[in-house]
Design a protein around this nucleic acid. Structure first.
Lengths: 160, 160
DNA sequence: GATTAATTGCAAATCATTTGCATATTCGCC
DNA sequence: GGCGAATATGCAAATGATTTGCAATTAATC
C-alpha cells in the first residue's frame, strides 16, 4: 500500500501536474459549474499518481468538504468529460485517475495481490493484435482493459 | 445477447465437453460433497460456452433447485478449486466459465458494449511482455486480466 | 441405518453505487 | 453587487451484488 518513489520521472504518465485552474477551465468549457466539491476532488486527484476509489477521495477531503454521493456524481461527470479514466482492479470497486489535457492516458497497472501496491505500466501489446481481433470479428471501436497482478518484491520476502 | 454459432469448432476452447461425472470426480478428489445443487450448477456451466453470472446460472436452474446464496458459495469454492474461472466484464457482476481438466483456460473475450454479445478470443499478447514487466519491477507470479470491448457487426447497423 | 461434518435455505447484513427531493450555489445578466 | 434560472449538493432512502449467521438438511463413512 505504500507508494513507491519514482525512479524515472520522465515516464510520460509522470508529466507535469496540470494546474487546478486548467482543470476547472476544462469544466467551464463544457458548461459545467466550478463548485467547491469539484475543485476539492480535482485537487485530490491532482496529487495522487495512482487510481483512487471514491471512498479514498472522500477520505482525503477536509472533513465535511463534500458528500460521498457528490463524489460519485462528480466522477461520473468527469469520466464522460474525459477528465478522468476509470480503472477496474477486479475487487468490485471503481478507481479513477486524472487524465491530463491532451494526454492519451492509455496505460495499465501492475497490482500486488497481497499489499495492493500499484505500479503504472506504460507498455502495451502491439496495436496490431487488437486490430486483427476487431477485423476478424467485424467489431468496430474496439478498446481493451488490461491489468497485471502479481506479488511485489516486499511481499515475496514477507512471511505473512 | 444472442449467442453466435461457432464457425470454428476446432478452436481450443470448444474442446469436448467434460462429462458431469468427471467434474464431480474432481470435487470428490478434493473431499467436497457431491450435492444436488452442485451437480445442477455444473450441468448449467457445462452447457454454456460463455461466462455466466450467478443470477444467470440461477435462472437456468429448475425452479427451487438451489438457492442463490448456494450458487455464490459454490462458485467461490469451484473457483478456488480451479474448476471455474472468474471473469470481469467491467459491469460490476462476476461471471464464471467452466475450466476443463488439464485445460490451460487462458483466454479473453470481446464484448459488445451495446448488446453484450460475447466472443471468445484465444489469442493473447506475447508472453515476453508480461515477463519483462514482471522482471522490471521485481514482481513474481504475474498474471493478467484482459478483455476487449467494441461494437459488434449487428449493432453497427442498428440505428438505435 | 447411525454419526458427523459439510452443505443448504432463508433471512438479515454488508458494501458499492444510485437516486429522489428539498435546499443551496454558481453563473450570466442587469 | 444583486436576481433568477439552471445546475449541484446534502441527506436519506433505494438498489443490486454479494456475504453471512444460524438452524435444519444431507452426503459420505462405518
Amino acid at each position: 500500500m505504500k507508494p513507491k518513489s519514482h525512479h524515472h520521472h520522465h515516464e510520460h504518465h509522470h508529466h507535469e501536474r496540470e494546474k487546478l485552474t486548467d482543470l476547472t477551465a476544462r469544466l467551464r468549457r463544457s458548461a459545467r459549474k466550478i463548485t467547491g466539491p469539484r475543485q476539492a476532488i480535482l485537487e485530490v486527484l491532482r496529487h495522487h499518481p495512482h487510481p483512487l476509489t471514491n471512498k479514498e477521495i472522500f477520505a482525503e477531503l477536509p472533513k465535511g468538504q463534500c458528500d460521498l454521493a457528490t463524489i460519485y456524481r462528480s466522477m461520473h461527470m468527469l469520466e464522460t468529460m474525459g477528465l478522468v479514466k476509470r480503472f477496474d482492479f477486479g475487487d468490485g470497486v471503481a478507481r479513477f485517475e486524472l487524465v491530463g489535457e491532451g494526454d492519451q492516458a492509455h496505460h495499465h497497472h501492475l497490482i500486488c495481490t497481497k499489499c495492493a501496491e500499484v505500479v503504472e505500466i506504460d507498455e502495451c501489446f502491439q496495436h496490431e493484435l487488437e486490430e486483427s481481433i476487431a477485423a476478424r470479428h467485424g467489431y468496430k471501436s474496439v478498446t481493451h482493459k488490461l491489468e497485471f497482478f502479481g506479488i511485489c518484491p516486499e511481499c515475496q520476502t514477507r512471511k505473512d
